[in-house]
Design a protein around this nucleic acid. Structure first.
Lengths: 267, 267
DNA sequence: GCTGGACCCTCCCCCCGTGGGAGGGTCCAC
DNA sequence: GTGGACCCTCCCACGGGGGGAGGGTCCAGC
């Protein structure tokens, strides 16, 4: 090892990093030069530091946060592999989210923001036998699917006279934890073991129909709630979804969902 | 339209935005409340503003920048669709980049950072007939492909006695514009119409072999350059790549590339 | 030995979109 | 009138740098 030290500019060019970056990595302790001149403050790097610097450059190109890179550099091979796997999973998740966004954006670009016909009408009172669940906003799809999976046996097993379609009930605000309910309409007086009975009041509602994947439901909600507010009305929780054509009956693009938002009467 | 105005908190809950966000959108002019109380500074929103607010929330979830959202809101339907298509393309591009990153990260997580055997050796002088090109760092793959497409006819048409493999020459620093060259070795004295002759000096080199997609070449360069620097040697441009097994002969995972970095002799 | 130019230093502000919090005023129902 | 929910402004933080001001340092060439 020769003691031929490199100035920050030369080292930056060798490692494909910018001078600013190297100074930043020094400040944060990620990669400190082997020598700093006490008088001038000049940073001097040893050629052996190129391995770490190149690794940093590589991992930054993978968009890993500097904090993670610091841990990966400091860790042994096994721990490092674990860190990289975790980052890989994080990236895979992001790709999944982006792909869902891309689809929504496709639809927005094609159909434009409007395209939903919102109507005001009256709904009768409905008596539903439901299952409840609590989930994170991102996990609503999974939560509903799981509820339906448990709901159908309960309805079928009791030979209850339930009436399609299935309904979903949702709050207006999507908070940390979302309380959802899934169920089906049952005749007055009927009870289903293991299911809770919820009575949805009848009255004035705004509604629209969405055709397409559930991931695009927010587009319909967007139009529906906007129309409600534009008419000076107040939406009332819970919002109701009727799954007219569900995943069991048709491909994703043909799913049909009726969105019903009760609105405050009079006023 | 009734003049029932909403406070910022209520409006935020209706539109699924945070109070902080709404204030920020007011500050930046994206969405100003219809009324601001002169005395208290309280913001009051009209129910009709929910449409815009919901649209903002929707587009933010698609990760569109606020500036773009502002343009989309202000634009007519056609222009808006154009903006959304542009954003869709941007997102698609990002997904592509992320997928490439994911692959690299997979490989890193499996194989770890090392795994390349770097050797020092001597290369003979080589006389190449080459084509030159300039491309952006991200477009190197395309640039090389295009060069090869033009190179092979030139070599074949001249019935020149060229010798596989094909070689690629690259600078050490990847700047804005990268000057590359692609060619094949030809015997002394031979000239090929339309191609430039480059003589690569013989001498001490460091080298390694990479098997896998070209997108992962940086991993090999990482190891190779790190090893060079660790030995206290100075790499010399241009870096040379020999395409031992190319895309025409094998699937991506079996591509074999020999990386050769000349190093300064003596000291 | 001097000088010019390339290089280096620190410090501050900027990007983006949002959250957190301090410190203080306002609204409304009881 | 009072308590508590609500609202205000202002400042700081994040991450990973870029841009630039203002000033010091190094070294090759003369």
């Amino acid at each position: 090892m020769r003691d031929e030290l490199l100035t920050i500019g030369r080292f930056a060019r060798l490692c494909r990093l910018s001078v600013k970056q190297l100074r930043h990595y020094d400040d944060t302790g990620l990669l400190a030069p082997v020598h700093v001149d006490a008088g001038s403050g000049y940073r001097y790097y040893a050629p052996e530091q190129a391995r770490d610097a190149l690794t940093i450059a590589l991992l930054r190109e993978m968009d890993l946060p500097l904090a993670v890179i610091a841990r990966a550099l400091a860790a042994g091979p096994e721990h490092r592999a674990r860190i990289l796997r975790a980052e890989r999973d994080r990236l895979a998740e992001r790709i999944g989210r982006d792909q869902a966004r891309l689809k929504t954006l496709e639809r927005l670009a094609e159909g434009g923001l409007p395209g939903y016909e919102v109507t005001l009408g009256r709904e009768p009172e409905r008596r539903l036998a439901v299952l409840r669940a609590t989930c994170a906003p991102a996990g609503i799809g999974a939560g509903v699917g799981e509820c339906v999976g448990r709901l159908l046996p309960a309805l079928g097993g009791a030979a209850a006279a339930w009436e399609p379609p299935l309904w979903g009930l949702y709050p207006l605000d999507l908070d940390e934890r979302v309380e959802i309910a899934v169920g089906a309409q049952v005749p007055r007086g009927e009870a289903v073991p293991g299911l809770e009975i919820v009575v949805l009041p009848g009255g004035l509602v705004a509604e629209t129909t969405h055709t397409g994947p559930y991931a695009h439901l927010r587009l319909a909600y967007n139009a529906l709630l906007a129309a409600v507010h534009e008419r000076g009305l107040r939406p009332q929780a819970p919002v109701r979804e009727a799954y007219l054509v569900g995943p069991a009956e048709a491909p994703e693009e043909e799913l049909t969902t009726r969105l019903v938002v009760p609105v405050q009467e009079g006023a």
